[in-house]
Design a protein around this nucleic acid. Structure first.
Lengths: 234, 234
DNA sequence: TCAAAAGTGTTAAGTTTACACCCATGA
DNA sequence: TCATGGGTGTAAACTTAACACTTTTGA
């Protein structure tokens, strides 16, 4: 705020215009046992305390909105430097029955194994399968729908799926992840052929013996060798 | 605002949280003589009066943010029921040097012929070619970049290009529009072949004699026959 | 009569899809 | 030994890309 007018006339150039509460809401996606999940929470404050909702919070006075989203995510997961993307701003006049609030939705992709489950319990949060999400507060369900649409549009062109997996993963896991997000079956041989052509998905020496007797090769996503690829097409 | 607490304690559940100015900024795209253009304006108020910027305005107290965007668009163009899409929210703490403002960008596609040019002059607004836009205020140039990226992602899957053209248009015009938006040459015969396969782009009896001696068939986009198509692929 | 834009098909290259069996292992 | 998930190649269908000449007409 840098007004050159005396403060007793106005506190800023814009002071005649109304102000609004601004919140962020986080759609936190995770992937577990072949299912895409989203984290929902029993709202911890009034109004509508105890109803299912997304995790959210109000933007602080001198905080970037991205920072606010990262703060909310960290509160609930303990995680930082997580892949997040803005979904959009939700600003219908009547969307929040507590007061006028303009909310900016972000989605995050987390490796569910790194998740802090004490924090999850502390916040009464719960991983729900994407197509079993109950009625949520306000327009939160629409936010999830929009976030999922955005994720779908991204997953086949940008290497974001790895954000949902542990550092080492099997091709079956990766395929199930794509199937869960795109909500369609993929042919195993065709899938592997295409993955093979992506130099930034690299086979390691390591073998996963959990999911099968025979053992499955573990792969990793190599950030460096992705650097120059503009995008791909699954 | 429906607080059940006495008004002298708090005015709403959220009253301990800060409030922010919220604005909308409009990226208004037009298409003229083979060029994609965007409307920029000499800012009519302080701070930074007279600098090039997008057309914007503050959200009113009981107004949806979409409504605010439509209002701003109407102020400048005289047009209503125009194709508009949210680009996203811009909320860096220091983005506006006048005061903290969170701005939500929308892009609009207008038929430049329907534009009210008196209003344009009144607002000191100017159609600039997309790749000749000068330095703009704050993060407005980034908003244009993001809007264009969004438009590009859309144009080949959804019939939005027509919003930029008059009701009747030639295939050459349509092709130039796609070339301008995608920023790449398209083969004429391949383009026409694909357009021919789209039942919702219909040839009319009318002929355009302006752009060539021979005359070119005029086509129109038929909304009704698009209804059931989920999307297409140019 | 010629300049300028409109209009028109075919072929080769590349991409996508469909499809079924053997392998390695632990229980 | 058998049940389970891992791993592998080819051919047909389809899509995309490359390419050049004729038509019409007003100046």
């Amino acid at each position: 705020m840098h007004s050159f007018l005396p403060y007793f006339i106005m506190t800023s150039y814009y002071s005649k215009y109304p102000k609004f509460h601004v919140a962020v809401d986080c759609i936190i996606f995770g992937f577990e046992r072949g299912r895409l999940k989203v984290l929902i929470q029993k709202r911890p404050f009034e109004p509508h305390q105890g109803e299912w909702s997304l995790m959210g919070g109000f933007v602080k006075r001198d905080e970037d909105i991205e920072e606010a989203a990262e703060r909310v995510l960290k509160q609930l997961t303990g995680l930082q430097n997580i892949f997040m993307k803005q979904v959009g701003a939700y600003g219908s006049a009547g969307r929040d029955s507590g007061d006028r609030v303009i909310s900016i939705a972000y989605f995050a992709l987390v490796d569910i194994d790194r998740f802090n489950h004490d924090l999850r319990h502390e916040h009464a949060a719960y991983w729900e399968e994407i197509d079993r999400v109950p009625q949520l507060l306000f327009d939160h369900k629409e936010m999830i729908k929009d976030a999922l649409r955005k994720l779908r549009g991204m997953i086949s062109r940008l290497p974001v799926g790895f954000e949902l997996l542990p550092p080492l993963f099997t091709l079956t896991q990766l395929q199930m992840l794509y199937e869960a997000i795109l909500n369609e079956k993929i042919d195993k041989r065709n899938f592997r052929k295409r993955i093979n052509e992506m130099p930034f998905i690299q086979k390691t020496e390591a073998v996963d013996k959990v999911s099968s007797r025979r053992g499955a090769a573990l792969y990793r996503f190599n950030v460096e060798s992705y650097q120059h690829e503009p995008f791909f097409r699954l």
